Structures are given as C-alpha cells and as structure tokens.
Simulated assay, not measured.
Amino acid sequence: MIRIAQLSDVHFGDENLPAVEAATSLLQADPPDLILITGDITRFAEVAELEAARDWLERLPRPWLVTPGNHDAPYLAWYERIFTPFARYERIIGPAWSQSHLDDQIAVAGVNTARGAQWRLNWSKGQISRDQVRTAVNFLDAAPADRVRLVALHHPLTEMIAGPMTAKVWGGVDAARAFSEARVDLVLSGHVHAPFALPYPFADERTYAVGCGTLSVRERGVPASFNMIEVDPDAIRVKALTWSGGQFEAYRTWSLDRRA
C-alpha cells in the first residue's frame, strides 16, 4: 500500500498553529511515502511568512513536493506581484513553475496554476496553459507504467458543486480532459479550503479530482484539515482528517475505483 499525505493552504501568517503542529507531529511519527503541499503556504507572501513556511517544510519527513498558490505571490508589493510574482517564493522555498517527483511507486507532476496578474479583476483565480499540460503529461508518460500518476496544483480545474468558493481556472476543463485521456490517477488541489473527491467526466472516468482543506484559521465551513491517501491495486482511499481542537478525527472518506 502507498501512503500519501496532502496538505494545503497553511497560510503562514494566518496558520492554525495547534493544527499545524499536530499534523507535523503525526507525519513525523508515521511518515508517509510522499507529502504533497498544494499551494497557499503563506498569507501575503511576506518574507517572514515564507521563511516560516520554509522552516516548517524542513521539519517534515521527506520526500515532499510543494507547488505555489495565489497567496504565494506578494499581495502588498504590487510591482513585484506584476513583474516578478514568484521571485521571493523561488528564493526562499524553491521552484515555482514546475516541480516533479519520481520514485519506484509514484510519479508526480507539479503545475503552477497561480498568476501574479491577469486580464481580469480577480487575480486569485487560476490559469493553466496548454504548454503546462503538455509538460506534465510528457513527464508522466515517460515514467514507468506501473507508477501511480499524480498531478499537484493549487486551483481545482473544474468547479465543485455547492463549494464554498470558485476557482474559475482558465483552461481548466481542457486540462482536466487532457489529464483524463493521459490516464492520470489523481489531480490534487487546494484553494477552496474544503475536502472533496470526484471523478472527471472524461475518458474512462477513472481520473479523480481530490481537494484538500486548510490548516489555517481561514476556514470556510470545514474545520482545519488535511488528507491521507492510501493507494492499493484496486482502489484509492482518501480520508479527510479534521482538527477537533485536541486531535485530528476522520471527517469523510472516499473510496475511488482504480482503472484496470
């Protein structure tokens, strides 16, 4: 069995410190095969927030992969946000535009769906380009066929019905279709601060969108949470663990059929 932890939207500067510490202790005590952090590790991408996020990442058991979110481009330094949106992130955390992980069980393509500025008023929404999709698919296609194939990004590519907020990803539906046709197993995201798991309605419908909650105080109807994912040959189980104030407890579990 393969075990993957997914954490998202920690928002250092607005982090839920007891929940972050408890999640960190759980992962240190029983390390999974991989930890994925799907964006918004800071509140405003201030240097102190990025440094706090870096210090936290260094405490997590490896391997881990982190991809940025819209909050990881400076909110207050407008010149940087428009012209060099992820320079601070790359200096303190690591690569912003493309990340990847490959081992003897798992292949992950990290994709940055956040933008510093866009040709629309709400810059917090997502974008994914054809080149980004092509790069991710090419990486996963080059991996051995028996690897679990994952895409990690911040914004959900398609909208969650009755979700607490929208992502409105430009190019999102086309990307979801392309990842489905490429036989990706999971597309993992954050942003909406609520966990979910649902199939994309494309190809064989065995590519699933999995959303993660937040470990910040910026809750949207769901307590602070993170996901534990277990992969067996026949099924993928996603368990959302929510913070009760004293411990993490099972909130919801999804069992997802794997393709043959």
Rank of each mutant, 00 (worst) to 15 (best):
I2T: 14
L60C: 05
I128P: 03
A87S: 13
S129K: 08
W56P: 02
V133D: 08
A96Y: 05
H154D: 00
W243T: 05
S98R: 14
P164I: 05
A203E: 11
K168A: 09
P156Q: 01
Q28P: 04
F202R: 13
M165H: 00
L198H: 13
L50Y: 02
A107P: 05
D14R: 10
S8F: 04
N122Y: 13
R130Y: 13
L36V: 07
V173D: 14
H191E: 00
G69I: 03
S100R: 09
F12V: 01
W243F: 11
I4Y: 05
L36C: 05
H155W: 01
L140Q: 11
A45G: 04
G163Y: 01
L65F: 08
P32S: 11
S216A: 00
H71V: 06
A23E: 02
H71I: 04
A167D: 02
G69M: 04
E219Q: 03
L102I: 11
D141S: 12
G245T: 11
E219R: 01
K239E: 15
W97Q: 12
D204Q: 09
V111R: 05
P201S: 11
A53F: 01
E46I: 06
I35L: 09
F179L: 10
G245E: 12
E21N: 09
T135Q: 14
W56K: 00
D9G: 01
Q247P: 13
S98L: 06
F202P: 07
R91N: 10
Q105P: 05
H191F: 00
A29K: 04
A178T: 08
C212T: 12
L121M: 15
Y251F: 15
R259L: 11
F226T: 07
T42A: 05
S98F: 00
S244F: 11
Q132Y: 08
G211L: 07
L60R: 04
S8K: 01
A182Y: 10
D174N: 13
A235Y: 15
V169E: 06
P32D: 06
V222S: 07
P156F: 04
A235K: 15
F86M: 03
G172Q: 06
I92F: 03
F139M: 10
A194W: 03
W170Y: 15
G110W: 02
L26V: 08
S255T: 15
R259F: 09
F179P: 03
D131R: 14
I106Q: 04
Q28W: 11
H101R: 06
L36N: 05
R115L: 13
I236A: 07
A162R: 00
G221H: 07
R115P: 13
F44I: 10
C212N: 01
E58W: 09
E21V: 10
A109T: 04
P201I: 12
